[in-house]
């Protein structure tokens, strides 16, 4: 599953065109890029920080940095990869500064989850084994499990499992080999399997 944003914005303009216009000083073109990438980058930062206020603040900083650096964007990679790299680096720096202190502040869960086959399967199995599982409990457990992962492992799990990026894309964003991405995913899944054992058996 690859949920990479379409290379064209809602008004049909490609990232390349929008970037070129923004580089010439057209702020509306950059607004279009912000509008287009906000949902995806929000998901990335939110799942790494588990705090929606921090996510909104950090996202502002990310786009401000991208705007300031836009003249230096030479187009050697796609804008998509470039903005993701900025986001990952800034989020990891933020997490280093934040240290162990984590104030969890979670978003509401979209009601669409109730029709998701995985959610149905988990909640049905829960009923049969007398485990009370509701949406909020599941959300809490998933977040706790994610926050137990190291930052590197959480990053690849967010990009691959939650955001649906491919190994090659993650490798480009993180600047590591595809083998490293696969290896980090393997260890992260093994840890998650331990933390969420009661949901997967």
């Amino acid at each position: 599953m690859n949920e990479q944003p379409a290379s064209h914005s809602s008004n049909g303009e490609s990232d390349t065109d929008l970037v070129a216009r923004a580089q010439q000083g057209d702020t509306r073109a950059f607004d279009d890029l912000v509008r287009k990438y906000t949902p995806k980058l929000y998901g990335l930062v939110y799942n790494m920080t588990s705090n929606r206020e921090d996510t909104a603040d950090l996202l502002q900083d990310i786009f401000a940095k991208a705007y300031r650096s836009l003249q230096r964007f030479m187009g050697k990679s796609s804008f998509y990869t470039w903005i993701y790299s900025i986001s990952v680096n800034m989020t990891l720096n933020f997490l280093k500064k934040r240290g162990r202190y984590t104030k969890v502040s979670l978003d509401d869960v979209d009601t669409g989850i109730q029709n998701d086959p995985t959610f149905i399967e988990v909640t049905t199995a829960a009923k049969s084994t007398l485990r009370e599982v509701n949406i909020h409990e599941l959300q809490k457990r998933l977040n706790e499990a994610m926050m137990k992962l190291s930052q590197d492992h959480r990053t690849v799990v967010t990009l691959y499992d939650v955001q649906g990026l491919q190994h090659a894309e993650i490798s480009q964003i993180l600047g590591v080999s595809e083998g490293t991405v696969r290896s980090r995913l393997f260890y992260a899944h093994r840890q998650l399997q331990t933390y969420l054992e009661d949901f997967v058996k």
Binding site: D31, V34, R35, T38, P39, Y42, G43, Y46, N47, R52, T55, A56, L59, Q60, F63, A64, L106, D107, D108, V109, D110, G112, I113, D116, T118, F119, V122, L138, Q139, L142, N143, M146, V157, D161, V162, Q163, G164, H189, L192, Q193, L196, F199, V200, K201
Partner: peptide, 29 residues
């Protein structure tokens, strides 16, 4: 079990900031 873990973690995509978030965010930006 790895596939189950992936599917379970993928449920996190339903955690969203709400429909108005993007518009408000762009204005704030």
């Amino acid at each position: 079990e790895f596939e189950k873990i992936q599917k379970l973690i993928r449920l996190k995509k339903y955690e969203t900031p709400g429909e108005q978030f993007v518009d408000e965010f762009v204005t704030a930006f």
